[in-house]
């Protein structure tokens, strides 16, 4: 029984961690650019990033299947490099989690970055710091709460990801069977005992994550 719970749990945490790691870096970068820069086609960039938030996960999943499939652009590159297909692997699940949780990070971080007092950033520039230093030492520390909130939301979203993951990674026990997928599988096969257990563990983990990180944000 221990193995039946631990395997999907660890897999879910691994996928969510990898996804959140990349979401954090790319998300902050995109959020900064969207909050601070004026460029033509900005609305399009904003819309593209936000889209997975609005689309049904099955649609996002379907688009990812096309992109990551053997004839898809991304799938092709992956196959060229590794010699294997990416669909139905945990990496595909991580990509799905990344795509659906990125908008949460971008939206939260961008609004936090946008509210940082402009004259404080200008003061840093005049005191001899370039834009990168200003962003690292002034803007991001002051937008810290929003960035951390974005991380929590993205992580939670990645843990709970179901639809897109099912489409790009299937539900292969031990390989791509994440917590939500395993719960669905257990329920489908009438194994309510396992489903309940997994639900309790998932709720507890999610609760702890949020509690821990919100304490971190208070500091």
């Amino acid at each position: 029984m221990f193995q039946v719970v631990m395997s999907p749990l660890l897999l879910t945490l691994k996928i969510a961690a990898v996804s959140t790691f990349f979401v954090t870096f790319l998300g902050i970068l995109i959020a900064y650019v969207l909050a601070k820069k004026e460029f033509s086609g900005k609305w399009l960039a904003d819309a593209l990033v936000t889209l997975p938030l609005i689309l049904p996960p099955t649609v996002t999943g379907y688009i990812l299947v096309i992109l990551l499939g053997k004839n898809g652009i991304l799938g092709n590159i992956f196959t060229e490099i590794t010699g294997k297909g990416i669909l139905f692997t945990w990496q595909a699940a991580a990509i799905a989690a990344f795509v659906v949780s990125l908008p949460l990070m971008v939206k939260t971080a961008a609004s936090a970055i946008g509210t940082v007092d402009r004259s404080v950033e200008e003061a840093a520039r005049i005191l001899g710091r370039n834009e990168l230093e200003t962003a690292l030492f002034i803007t991001l520390p002051l937008a810290k709460k929003g960035v951390i909130a974005g991380c929590i939301l993205s992580f939670a979203r990645a843990v709970g990801e179901f639809g897109a993951t099912l489409m790009v990674a299937g539900n292969i026990p031990g390989k791509t069977g994440t917590m939500p997928l395993s719960i669905y599988g257990a329920y489908q096969t009438g194994n309510n005992e396992l489903a309940s257990l997994l639900v309790i563990v998932l709720v507890a983990i999610s609760f702890l994550t949020i509690a821990a990180t919100s304490r971190l944000a208070e500091k």
């Binding site: 007092d117 004259s119 404080v120 200008e122 003061a123 520039r125 370039n130 030492f137 520390p141 002051l142």
Partner: peptide, 28 residues
């Protein structure tokens, strides 16, 4: 760019760095 100009500037609202103490502000 502003960081290459040797200028001291005081804003209408102090524009201090709220996450740094007085010494850190001055040393920035």
């Amino acid at each position: 760019p502003p960081q290459k100009r040797k200028i001291g500037y005081m804003f209408q609202e102090n524009a201090l760095f709220p996450h740094m103490n007085v010494r850190q502000n001055i040393e920035f």
